[in-house]
């Protein structure tokens, strides 16, 4: 091993991990430890594996993932805060041959955009929705979200979320599972190797559903925002397991095989 050069190690036969060709080499703006980057990687891999790079249009939100378009090599559109499902509707309806997905945070999807997501799902828009629930507004500096847990401190609930003042954590995924327009509704996480693998399967299924024109597929990823939570990445993972999963229970909420009726004709 003594005089081994790096070139001796980087050989195809030694390769145990390779990143997707659709992942763009660029400076990463996400905080180390953030869940966003892992989910981006999964989406890039899935688009490549399904061979749909030329047909996929991503819709990025307002939130930390606003720059999702810097990382995956497909066509993108950046939507106003909360409006990604409406933007995706406009793309998908006028381009039924395209695979359209939105990527939204919990402030974006559960607060300001609660209306748009419910109606897009209720109409059964043929889109994938990736919902990154980190129980906080990451981008604006850690304010309370509708998904913030009771007692969880944030910059706008410094003593912890108070039910009397702010009501209860909002379970969008449970609400969305009740809507007949959705065919697949699931809650995942990406904090361990095993959950990353499971989450990838779920997101892949969501994309395959859209390829089969089955209606809306909705994947919540219970996520960490270690910066907003003011924790270490490892501490954030533990806190998520111990606190978030009790409120946001991982698993499939719905998996239908019903085809949505086609429009017109």
């Amino acid at each position: 091993m003594k005089n081994m050069d790096i070139k001796d190690i980087i050989k195809p036969e030694n390769l145990v991990y390779d990143k997707s060709e659709l992942q763009i080499d660029t400076i990463m703006h996400y905080c180390p430890g953030c869940s966003h980057g892992v989910v981006h990687k999964l989406i890039a891999e899935i688009i490549e594996e399904l061979g749909i790079q030329e047909d996929t249009i991503g819709v990025s939100p307002v939130g930390c993932a606003v720059f999702a378009y810097n990382y995956i090599d497909i066509d993108w559109q950046q939507a106003a805060h909360g409006r990604a499902p409406a933007v995706a509707t406009g793309i998908a309806r006028t381009n039924p041959d395209k695979i359209v997905f939105t990527y939204q945070g919990d402030g974006d999807l559960a607060s300001i955009g609660a209306g748009e997501i419910l109606h897009a799902c209720n109409r059964g828009e043929n889109i994938v929705v990736i919902f990154i629930n980190n129980a906080i507004y990451g981008m604006t500096g850690g304010q309370m979200a509708p998904t913030t847990l009771i007692g969880q401190p944030t910059s706008t609930s410094p003593l912890g979320r108070d039910v009397a003042l702010n009501g209860y954590p909002m379970k969008m995924t449970e609400i969305i599972a009740t809507l007949p327009g959705t065919c697949y509704v699931t809650r995942q996480s990406v904090h361990t190797a095993a959950t990353v693998r499971k989450c990838k399967k779920a997101i892949k299924k969501a994309f395959q559903n859209v390829m089969a024109k089955k209606g809306t597929s909705f994947v919540e990823v219970v996520s960490t925002c270690n910066s907003g939570w003011k924790m270490t990445p490892v501490g954030a993972n533990t806190w998520m397991e111990e606190n978030m999963f009790a409120e946001y229970v991982p698993g499939d909420l719905k998996d239908n095989d019903i085809q949505k009726p086609a429009i017109g004709n």
Partner: peptide, 10 residues
């Protein structure tokens, strides 16, 4: 709000 954002998408 949704209409104009659908227009934006299309």
């Amino acid at each position: 709000v949704a209409s104009i954002n659908m227009v934006y998408g299309a």
